[in-house]
């Protein structure tokens, strides 16, 4: 049976983890390679790096992080943040990423999804979508959530799926950082629309939230950052809890 995936996300800036594990004695706690390795050895099903670098020089640093990670970590590796072109995607994949996530660039030019999935296969093209509820609908935001694009979320989901996205990474900006749980209405409605896998993100604060996201939200994968980094919950605890509640996970 196909398992629900648990994905820790690490923010990386200029080759260093900004928001990462701070509870164990890693030799170098700011080293993304060490953190990725730690998660991989402790039950993560995939690793997600979010590059929050500003400059081009820093982007090259991210490529060397990917290269080193690929030598140590043997589970799928996704990189997102600032992916703008086919060349960016190619560079990331050649450096050792298995998937790239595209956000603002897809909003600016949706054709990049089509071109990229035709070029590299849809399996490696994740479309990341940040949404915020306005009235009764969810609106897509770009540029790290700072700009309201006035695109309605569900129509965007359908569009990117048709363009060849391989997966959707859906973040509720309303829930992100709140620790009150995933936006289950958003997830449930999105699951109905999508034939491709849905990764839920934003709002996890306790272990039950993972269950809700998988069971009620029908997400295929659950992404979290701070609850793992601060050791509030371990990935294995999440998996054991899900297993006990009849949700299949990889143990």
């Amino acid at each position: 049976m196909l398992k629900k995936r648990i994905i820790p996300c690490l923010d990386v800036k200029d080759g260093r983890v900004v928001k990462g594990i701070n509870f164990i004695d890693l030799v170098d706690a700011g080293d993304p390679v060490e953190q990725a390795k730690f998660y991989s050895e402790n039950g993560a099903d995939e690793i997600c790096f979010l590059d929050i670098s500003a400059s081009l020089e820093e982007r090259d640093t991210m490529l060397s992080v990917l290269k080193k990670t690929a030598q140590e970590v043997f589970i799928p590796l996704t990189v997102g943040g600032g992916i703008k072109s086919i060349k960016n995607i190619k560079d990331s994949l050649m450096a050792g990423a298995d998937k790239v996530s595209i956000n603002s660039a897809a909003i600016k030019n949706p054709e990049i999804i089509k071109n990229a999935s035709e070029h590299f296969g849809s399996q490696c093209i994740v479309v990341a979508i940040d949404v915020k509820k306005t009235g009764s609908s969810w609106m897509v935001h770009s540029h790290g959530g700072t700009i309201n694009t006035n695109i309605e979320a569900f129509s965007w989901l359908e569009k990117v799926q048709n363009l060849g996205a391989g997966e959707i990474l859906l973040t509720s900006m309303d829930r992100d950082g709140t620790k009150i749980g995933f936006d289950l209405d958003l997830l449930r409605e999105s699951s109905k629309i999508l034939d491709i896998p849905l990764i839920a993100s934003g709002g996890v604060g306790k272990i039950d939230h993972f269950f809700e996201g998988a069971h009620i939200g029908q997400a295929d994968a659950l992404l979290a950052a701070s609850v793992f980094h601060f050791n509030e919950i371990s990935i294995m605890q999440v998996k054991e809890f899900l297993k006990k509640n009849n949700i299949e996970v990889r143990l």
Partner: peptide, 11 residues
């Protein structure tokens, strides 16, 4: 009954 692609961990 299943999504395609078959993506993720399976036994």
């Amino acid at each position: 009954e299943t999504k395609l692609p078959h993506m993720g961990w399976n036994n």
